[in-house]
């Protein structure tokens, strides 16, 4: 074998090692992450309803209206309420409603929110205990991610671990794991983890309205790494950051 051939061989082997190293880093990075099967932005939601059956005498809000705390939403006039008032069984005002003496109840927004799913119009009859509308609390957006995990990986999802949230327009937000719970997927015979992700960047209506309740996203959760190569990835990441990549 000539020296030029030896040189070629060694150079080739070096190239192979480099390619493998790069691919291993990519693999590691992926292994240190769990990517959601499905994830959606959700808001803390509250069903607005009344304990008294009656007629909606006034619907003050519609779907999508933003309301401030204390804003009136619906007025329901109820004969039962009138009766209870007469008996003195009802306390008049709470944060959720105000009761008038003529037997009408005005439901108010307990906090700043967006109205979704209005179930009753003016003049409609509502039953006791039914939900008339749903309020999504402003600033309460979280991401619910369904993640398929190996049993050993359950322990690697730590509260507070960073999560990358990919919006449908490919823009990325960062968040962190708030809680983990387990759901059984009976149909496909597997176990899914439901991870709740919170983020300061989840402001309602941001990114051209993409950040809102119900938007499908992809969440990549960083898993806790304590394997032999745990440090290598970070060092490499630091190196890349340092050289400006």
């Amino acid at each position: 074998m000539t020296w030029s051939n030896r040189f070629r061989l060694v150079a080739g082997l070096l190239a192979v090692v480099l390619v493998c190293a790069a691919l291993t880093l990519v693999m590691n990075r992926r292994l240190a992450q769990a990517t959601s099967e499905s994830a959606t932005i959700r808001a803390e939601s509250l069903g607005i309803g009344t304990d008294y059956a009656g007629t909606v005498s006034e619907a003050l809000v519609e779907d999508g209206d933003e309301v401030a705390a204390g804003d009136p939403l619906f007025t329901v006039s109820s004969l039962t309420l009138q009766h209870d008032l007469a008996l003195g069984l009802v306390s008049t005002d709470t944060a959720a409603y105000q009761v008038d003496d003529d037997g009408t109840i005005t439901l108010v927004a307990p906090y700043d929110a967006v109205v979704t799913e209005v179930a009753a119009r003016q003049g409609a009859f509502v039953e006791a205990g039914s939900t008339i509308a749903t309020l999504d609390r402003a600033g309460s957006l979280t991401v619910d991610a369904q993640v398929e995990l190996d049993p050993s990986d359950f322990a690697r999802v730590r509260t507070g671990a960073p999560v990358r949230i990919l919006l449908p327009d490919r823009s990325e937000l960062t968040g962190e794991v708030a809680s983990v719970s387990v759901t059984d997927d009976e149909e496909e015979n597997r176990v899914l983890a439901t991870v709740e992700v919170t983020s300061d960047e989840l402001a309602d209506g941001a990114n051209d309205g993409l950040v809102s309740s119900g938007t499908p996203v992809v969440a990549s959760i960083d898993l806790h790494v304590d394997g032999p190569l745990a440090g290598v990835n970070e060092t490499f990441g630091d190196f890349l950051r340092k050289v400006g990549l």
């Binding site: 074998m1 051939n5 070629r8 061989l9 082997l13 190239a15 192979v16 090692v17 390619v19």
Partner: peptide, 17 residues
């Protein structure tokens, strides 16, 4: 080996993989 360098490199790649 002069005539089978690609095979050697592939072998190295598969071995590491």
């Amino acid at each position: 080996f002069t005539f089978m360098m690609p095979q050697v490199l592939f072998f190295a790649f598969l071995l590491i993989t």
